[in-house]
Computed example of a mutant assay.
Amino acid sequence: MSVYVNNQFRIKRNAAQQEAMQRLVAAKIFDGYKDILMISAVIAYNIGAFNPIEKPASDGVLMQFFSSKDYDIIDMIAYAHKKEQSVITSDEKYEIFSSYANAGFPILLEKLELNGVEEISIDEARKAQIRYYRLLLSDGFSVSIGSEELLK
Score class of each variant (00 low, 15 high):
Ala20Asn: 12
Gln22Asp: 13
Arg23Leu: 14
Leu24Glu: 04
Leu24His: 03
Val25Tyr: 03
Ala27Arg: 01
Lys28Trp: 00
Ile29Met: 04
Asp31Phe: 07
Gly32Asn: 12
Met38Val: 04
Ile39Gly: 03
Ile39Thr: 05
Ser40Ala: 12
Ala41Thr: 12
Ile43Trp: 05
Ile43Gly: 09
Ala44Phe: 13
Ile47Lys: 15
Gly48Met: 02
Gly48Arg: 06
Phe50Tyr: 15
Ile53Thr: 02
Lys55Pro: 00
Pro56Arg: 07
Val61Met: 15
Leu62Asn: 11
Leu62Trp: 10
Leu62Lys: 14
Ser68Asn: 06
Ser68Lys: 08
Asp70Asn: 12
Tyr71Val: 05
Asp72Pro: 00
Ile74Leu: 08
Ile74His: 08
Asp75Ser: 03
Met76Asn: 10
Ile77Tyr: 13
Ala78Gly: 09
His81Trp: 06
His81Met: 01
Lys82Arg: 14
Lys83Phe: 09
Ser86Ile: 14
Ile88Tyr: 06
Thr89Trp: 02
Lys93Gln: 13
Lys93Ala: 13
Lys93Tyr: 09
Lys93Ile: 13
Lys93Trp: 07
Phe97Gly: 10
Ser98Ala: 15
Ala101Ser: 15
Asn102Pro: 04
Ala103His: 06
Ala103Lys: 04
Ile107Arg: 14
Ile107Asp: 09
Leu108Pro: 09
Leu109Lys: 11
Glu110Asp: 15
Glu110Val: 04
Leu112Lys: 02
Leu114Gln: 05
Asn115Lys: 14
Gly116Met: 05
Gly116Glu: 08
Ser121Lys: 01
Ile122Pro: 00
Asp123Glu: 12
Glu124Lys: 11
Arg126Lys: 04
Lys127Gln: 07
Ala128Lys: 03
Gln129Pro: 01
Arg131Asn: 06
Tyr133Pro: 00
Tyr133Ser: 07
